[in-house]
Design a protein around this nucleic acid. Structure first.
Lengths: 207, 207
DNA sequence: GTCTATACTCGGATAGAC
DNA sequence: GTCTATCCGAGTATAGAC
């Protein structure tokens, strides 16, 4: 996804990004050295600088790309004609599935925000707000047409996203419950928290 | 609160803990140096080692004490005779208020878990499980007596805690809404997500 | 585009005087 | 209990050969 800050090789750059993503997620940006990343890729530390101008640019690349891909993925999945309740259900399922499948990138995006230099931080924050606005939009539509009962759509959007993202902190694929079951539980909790009619849980069985 | 790992002075130790808490919260455990902490306290770096055996022990002290105090605070606030719905409401309000008031410690407790050595990690994890068990207990009581509608009390407990803790990521005391208003919104969302009867929102106006 | 070699800075932690 | 001085390892990043 470009953003390689002055370089050419896309092949090696991708391997660097992938190694950095894993290492940053496991031990944190500050605790991981360029030497370590290079070692994982199989090159010398100096070679990384052919692909990313410095460690900060590497982090920025990971966070920006993650947010751009997340937004693009939802835009591809969203369905404009859908009613708010179905839309919120679709979002909840999407968010859980996407976040669980990209847990390293998600983790970094929450944990390493503070290690971004101001300009990079603003860029990522704007992308995050774009994503949050999707939920706000759904909730407001639901408020207008009376399907939801909410005091404040922005607060509720944050609350719902926090709840859904929380799955990542404990989900393990070997766990007690399948992802489908977890999706089901969270979807019903999200819909109820938004004040959607509980009886509408019938349509949950659709997907 | 003890845990000073071989030292005496409680006065200086507390100032070290306080400085470390602020710095770790602002920039992360790995990115903060012992010299920096010492500078904030107004002593030389070597003096820190009279109070904490090393940097790891300092982090452990912060996380363990935070969890112990959190648990003690809830135990002091919980009310055994209360019904599940009122208990869940009380918990939601408590959790938000406590977490907002101790945001640095809360932030560190989530962000720096991975920087704990295995034994310290286990100790903190056990305390965290103890806290989560409070919510599981409330939910199960509510399930038994039919006040709540849930598929899985453990998952729902995690979801509720994640939602509530999320307040810390965006709350600012100068913000658009007062803490009381935020508390109100979250309480109603939590109760609804647990399947409590929406009409019972009447009792929310009590506090 | 990658290598080796290195400049330069800063980290945690300890020794021993006071 | 705090200080000064210091050890030693590790960090990012660059220079220049190939």
């Amino acid at each position: 996804m470009a953003r390689t800050s002055g370089s050419i090789g896309t092949e090696t750059a991708e391997r660097i990004r992938s190694a950095a993503e894993q290492l940053f997620a496991a031990r944190g940006f500050a605790a991981v050295s360029m030497r370590e990343i290079a070692g994982e890729v199989g090159v010398q530390a100096a070679a990384l600088y052919n692909h990313f101008s410095n460690k900060q640019a590497l982090l920025e690349s990971l966070l920006v790309t993650h947010m751009e891909e997340l937004i693009a993925a939802w835009e591809a999945e969203a369905c404009a004609e859908e009613g708010p309740e179905r839309a919120l259900e679709r979002f909840a399922r999407f968010h859980i599935r996407y976040h669980v499948s990209r847990s390293d990138a998600v983790f970094i995006s929450y944990m390493e925000l503070r290690n971004l230099e101001p300009e990079n931080f603003r860029r990522v924050e704007n992308l995050r707000k774009t994503y949050e606005a999707f939920v706000v939009g759904i909730l407001e539509k639901g408020l207008t047409c009376g399907e939801f009962t909410l005091v404040d759509s922005r607060i509720s959007a944050m609350a719902i996203i926090a709840m859904l993202t929380g799955v990542n902190t404990w989900y393990r694929s070997q766990g007690r419950l399948s992802l489908a079951e977890i999706e089901e539980i969270y979807t019903s909790m999200v819909l109820r928290s938004a004040g959607a009619l509980p009886k509408e849980a019938s349509c949950l069985a659709a997907e």
